[in-house]
């Protein structure tokens, strides 16, 4: 029986034909419609609500208010997991998950995207939109003022870490 099953195995192999692609030389196969590649940020549509920054599991989007009128949003891209939550939550659909996946680079800043946004003063509550559910809204209770130069996520929250009120993001040295 063993010999027969060897023949069967060989037949399976030969019946399949060559299936791998000469990938790096030839282009890759097209990706499906829903593919979640590198997120692209559209500054023209962004209203600077920071909903994406507050709900990014990887803490890859920083918010920094230079002055009353200018807010800088920075997408770091170094350990983004492409989960697509930012695109889900964006009220203005300013973030799209692109089809790009060949993003390997030697210099991480290549992946960064910076948005400089003009923020006009809000005459009302200051909350320009509501997130889809209570689990997304709650993060806004604290106050964010990220350290752009150090590329660090800073969040003053009411966490119970008494001796460490400043919850810090991981410091990764970028060179």
């Amino acid at each position: 029986m063993s010999f027969l099953s060897k023949i069967r195995e060989v037949m399976i192999c030969l019946g399949a034909g060559q299936v791998t692609l000469p990938y790096p030389v030839a282009a890759a196969e097209p990706v499906p419609e829903r593919f979640r590649g590198r997120p692209l940020f559209n500054a023209a549509q962004c209203i600077g609500c920071a909903g994406c920054a507050n709900n990014c599991p990887a803490r890859e989007i920083l918010v920094f208010d230079v002055c009353q009128e200018v807010r800088i949003m920075k997408y770091l891209g170094r350990r983004c997991t492409y989960c697509g939550r930012c695109a889900d939550l964006c009220p203005e659909k300013a973030i799209t998950m692109s089809r790009e996946f060949e993003t390997a680079t030697q210099t991480i800043p290549d992946l960064q995207q910076n948005l400089e946004l003009f923020m006009s003063t809000c005459q009302r509550c200051g909350r320009c939109f509501t997130e889809p559910g209570p689990l997304e809204q709650l993060m806004l209770k604290g106050y964010r003022f990220d350290a752009l130069a150090e590329e660090r996520w800073v969040y003053r929250s009411q966490a119970h870490l008494q001796n460490e009120p400043l919850v810090r993001d991981i410091d990764i040295e970028l060179d």
């Binding site: 060989v10 192999c13 034909g17 299936v19 692609l21």
Partner: peptide, 8 residues
């Protein structure tokens, strides 16, 4: 070997 294994 690659041919048997359906590879390039």
């Amino acid at each position: 070997t690659a041919w048997v294994q359906s590879r390039q």
